[in-house]
Structure formats: structure tokens, C-alpha cells
Design a protein around this nucleic acid. Structure first.
Lengths: 219, 219
DNA sequence: TTTTCTTGAAATCTCGAAATTTCTGATGCA
DNA sequence: TGCATCAGAAATTTCGAGATTTCAAGAAAA
């Protein structure tokens, strides 16, 4: 079993509470391995910002704060806007159809959740499909590092919103917003794309707070 | 001695060649610690993208490629532009004077290098002062995550340009370009700032290659 | 009461050895 | 020669014990 991968998944899906202490000695029980192996995984997660590390004081989950959520959301808007616009320029039809496919899969799952409520299995599927959709959006941008940084920010976003995610409020809006993003991609208009991405995230920003540089024009 | 910190420094200052294999068993000799401790440091560096890690195959330095340099440079332009413009809005006089101070320190070192050539000691001082200048530029942006991602990208940039750095070609241009950035900060005009930052990095981009989204307007 | 000190328990960190996997290159076969 | 096989060497990864540091609770002093 891949300890790193599994703890990462738990850290972004709400298995640990905000601010909870993560003890290697205890987590080892879940994996039947030594504490050193768990420690190794935690150190890697710390380098990615999913876990906080203090020398001689071990690991904890980051605390929640509205400012942190705002900050991370803003960064997601910035990176996804940039990546999506670059994909629009270089992706061609191949990208458009991949995006369509990813969206189809996602909206299928979202409709089922909207209809029958969120089961554990559907939530799991949704997590994967939602990530895939947003990664597909950037997949033709031509920048490895943009994709990598986006994944980092995406994971932190999921972590911050883990509780919220489980409620699946706004599924309906999500379906509409994702559709709007796909439409923008097909329209070929970058300004529309920027607006649509901004609208998708708007409700996760702090109200009445000045908004980032290239984003300001959209408000 | 902090093994992680020291290996990080070496990894971004050209102590290791591009593509070089990093063996924990060998590096331990430099620090008089066990291989596990070195391994721990390398795993953390891998999470930050400064070292590549393959399961069961150990660690290596990333290979150099012009595309990677272009990609990283573009990302630096994007993040520093965004951060600098936000700092201009929220930083006030306090920020302006900190920026001035950081620039003064840096240009002092750069002039000495231009005059007497690059000694090891001056190179060391330059590394610290150049980082401090660019970090000060973003320091009032109000986004922790922007600052953190920028540091990651900055480190990768230094790593890619490590050989180039040691030659100190373009010191003269650097002095001028840094000054131009400070002037833009004081002028309060964001478009000027974007242009100046772009010009500072322009020579590290691949010629004739389409340039990123929000940057395109500057070309 | 509040602060400082003491002390035992608990957590963190380091280490070198053992287990596992990959690499190397020599041998045999077609 | 070209290719597969295999054994030994080398590298990577895991492990649990021991050393070090932090934490917590109670005693002593202000």
C-alpha cells in the first residue's frame, strides 16, 4: 500500500479535522508499517503545504480560516484562467473533445447526486471526476509547471473545502457553471472564459474584498 | 547542521550537475549523519520539484532543457507581475522604502561584481540579495500562497540558471533593469511595472515562441 | 493566587542493520 | 553477432530500538 498516496487522499477529503495533530506512531496502525515510513510521507506532504511541520513538534493539519480560503481560491482562479486560455490557443479540436468528455462524465455524476443525494460512492467518483475536468481544462496549456502548481493549489482547495464538499449544496449551480466553461472553450473567446471561471469560484471568495490583479477587470 | 537546508542550497547553486544522481549513502559523508536523514531531505526537495524521485530508483537532479527554462521563466514573470502589482496597491510607503532598501543592497553588490569580477564571496552575497529583492517586490501582495509558490518557482529558476549565474554576464543590464522595476513601483503605474518585469526576463525566454496569456499584451 | 522549578511520560528524531529491488556484465544458446 | 538468462554486486527502502527533545502535572517559591 502506498502510504504517501493514501494519507494525501485522506488529508484532502476531510478524514482529518482542521488543526488535528498527526502522529506517526498512531497512523502506522492504519498501514502496518513502521513510524519512519509514515514520517517520510508526512514530510513530503508538508513540502506540498497539505500538512504543517514544525521541527521537534511534529505534524498537524492546517487550521481553517476564511482568509486562507479566499487566498487559495484567488490563486485557483488565476492559474486556471491562465491555463484554460493557453489551452484554448494550442489545444485544438483534440482538447475540445477531451474537455467535452470530461465534462460529460462529471455532469453525469453530478446529476445523479442532485437526484438521489450524495452517497459515499458517488462522492468518491465526484472527487475524481471534478479533478479530471479541471485538469483537462489546463491539459493543453503547454506548461508543465503551471499544471504542477495548479495541482498543488487544487489539493489545498479541496482540503479547505472538505466539509463543504460533503454537503453537495450548489450541485445544481456547479452543473450549470461547468457547462458554461465548456461553452466558453468552444466559443474561442478568452474574455468569456475568464468571466466564466471567475463566476464558478465567486461564491468562495470573501465578499467586498479587493480582488487580484488580472482578475480585477472582471468584477 | 541542517541537512535539508544545505542540500537545497547546493541544489540551486550549481553544486550538482544537471541530471546527476544523488545517492544518500554518498551524501551522508558530507554531513556525518545516517543515510536515512539524507533520504528524508531529498524526499522533501523532490516534493518541491528541485530533485527528481523515482520509486526504487533513487534521486537525480532534473535535466536541463531550453523548454524547461522558458516554462519556468514564464511562470516567474506571471507570479512576479501579479505579486508586484498587488503590492503596489496595498503596500504603501512602507513597502516602497523596503523595496528601495533591498534594491540598494543588491545594486551595491552588483556594482562591486561589475568592477572587480565575481569572487565566491560576492556570488554568495548576490544570491541572497537578489532573492531578497524579488521577495520584497511581492512582500506586500497579501497572499501567502502566491509568495510560497513564487519561492518554489524562484528556486527552480536559480537551479536551471546556476551555471549562467556564475558567469555574471549581464550584471550591467541587471542593475539597470532592477532600477527600472523600482522606478515603476514608485510611479504607481501597473502597466509600466508589467512591462519592466517582462523586460527583465525577456532574454531568458525562447525566441519566437508564443508567450503566455496575460503577458501577450506586452510583446 | 501566580510564577517558577522539577520530574516522569510521551513524542520526535536519528541511526545502522536487514530486507528488498534494481543494476551489471558474464555466460550460454540460436 | 544478437538475445535471453542468471548470479553477484550495488542501491534503495523498511524497520525498530535508542537518543534527544518537548509536553504536562504537581511541588515549591514569590
Amino acid at each position: 500500500m502506498d502510504v504517501f498516496e493514501d494519507i494525501r487522499t485522506r488529508a484532502i477529503s476531510g478524514s482529518f479535522a482542521h488543526g488535528e495533530k498527526l502522529r506517526a506512531e498512531i497512523l502506522r496502525n492504519d498501514y502496518g508499517c513502521s513510524a519512519s515510513t509514515v514520517r517520510e510521507a508526512l514530510l513530503r506532504l508538508a513540502a506540498l503545504g497539505l500538512v504543517e511541520f514544525q521541527e521537534q513538534r511534529g505534524f498537524r493539519m492546517p487550521e481553517y480560516s476564511p482568509e486562507r480560503q479566499h487566498d487559495i481560491t484567488q490563486m485557483r482562479i488565476m492559474l486556471e484562467t491562465e491555463g484554460a486560455c493557453r489551452s484554448m490557443r494550442h489545444g485544438g479540436v483534440a482538447w475540445e473533445s477531451r474537455l467535452n468528455a470530461a465534462h460529460h462524465k462529471l455532469s453525469h455524476i453530478e446529476s445523479r447526486i442532485a437526484a438521489m443525494g450524495p452517497t459515499d460512492e458517488l462522492a468518491q467518483l465526484w472527487m475524481a471526476a471534478e479533478l479530471e475536468f479541471h485538469q483537462t481544462l489546463l491539459s493543453a496549456c503547454g506548461s508543465d509547471i503551471l499544471i504542477e502548481l495548479h495541482l498543488q493549489v487544487y489539493n489545498r482547495y479541496r482540503q479547505v473545502k472538505a466539509e463543504y464538499d460533503r454537503t453537495f449544496l450548489h450541485v445544481t449551480e456547479n452543473i450549470r457553471e461547468h457547462q458554461a466553461i465548456v461553452d466558453a472553450a468552444l466559443s474561442g473567446d478568452e474574455t468569456t472564459m475568464r468571466t466564466r471561471i471567475f463566476e464558478h469560484f465567486e461564491r468562495h471568495l470573501l465578499p467586498g474584498r479587493p480582488v487580484a490583479g488580472s482578475l480585477a477587470a472582471l468584477v
